[in-house]
Design a protein around this nucleic acid. Sequence first.
DNA 1: TTCATATGGTTGACAACATCAACTAGTGAA
DNA 2: TTCACTAGTTGATGTTGTCAACCATATGAA
Lengths: 143, 143
Amino acid sequence: MNDDPDIRQVLWQLAFQFKVSSKRAVRDYDLPLNGMHIRLLHMIRRHPDCTAQQIASVTGRDKAQITRVIKELEGMALITRTPDPEDRRAQLLSLNEKGRGLMARIKDAEDDVKKTLLKGINKKDQNTFIEIGNRMLDNLREH
Amino acid sequence: MNDDPDIRQVLWQLAFQFKVSSKRAVRDYDLPLNGMHIRLLHMIRRHPDCTAQQIASVTGRDKAQITRVIKELEGMALITRTPDPEDRRAQLLSLNEKGRGLMARIKDAEDDVKKTLLKGINKKDQNTFIEIGNRMLDNLREH
DNA sequence: TTCATATGGTTGACAACATCAACTAGTGAA
DNA sequence: TTCACTAGTTGATGTTGTCAACCATATGAA
């Protein structure tokens, strides 16, 4: 009844193997980053002048975690924080030159993983997977 | 160019939200377990008299981690370890009465998550998702 | 204006999971 | 018997997730 190819098994294993592959790619490309660094760099590039709070809310992560990762990224001189003129509690985040430079190598590493992941899977199936996956995500997020 | 619904984003978020939901279900059902405990209990139930090595190899996890989780499960008196008569290095794992009893409650908790996850997604789409997911898994696993 | 309350961010502490290396004890083949 | 290999254990350390307490600022109601 619940013994056959179980969706939870697939999700669990897929998450794990995907993480393993990503980690290996990051090492192969000699990037001084971990997964969370990379995700945040993406978000900051995509949403310039966003705040830590926005990132926390979009990703669903705890703001404490976001704070720490941002501090590390700033420590590596990849991003800059400027006080929000409209709200002095908040700080606007953006990639600096070095950060933008790193993104190119990050993209290469990620494309390696993506290429492996999607080998032999046609565009239509990819989109189907993403579409169903997003529906599941919506289900989980709305409690 | 790579800005559209990205498959990595979906995998990353799905893994995270799935973990969050599972964790909440485990808490709601007052189970004294974490995710890894539950996965191993499943495996041991499905493959009676399996060894730690087999679990490590099937799941792709480090054997050190498996050792520790098994020790915890034994400490909670959910499984028993009996020396393999054919190989005195190995130990055969199996659920005991208490372990089997817990599985019922685990199943309830997991079914809650599954029900949320799959709400409004028909059987055909579920199978499609699993099928494509497994192909991705194969891709990742074969290097 | 003032006060209660809410929000953005920081910090500390800790749990869960992953990784790597070194080690013991047992196996099996030359 | 010796040597390479395997099952399992232990220690150390890194990454990610969670919770609670806290500071500074913002905002709405009295």
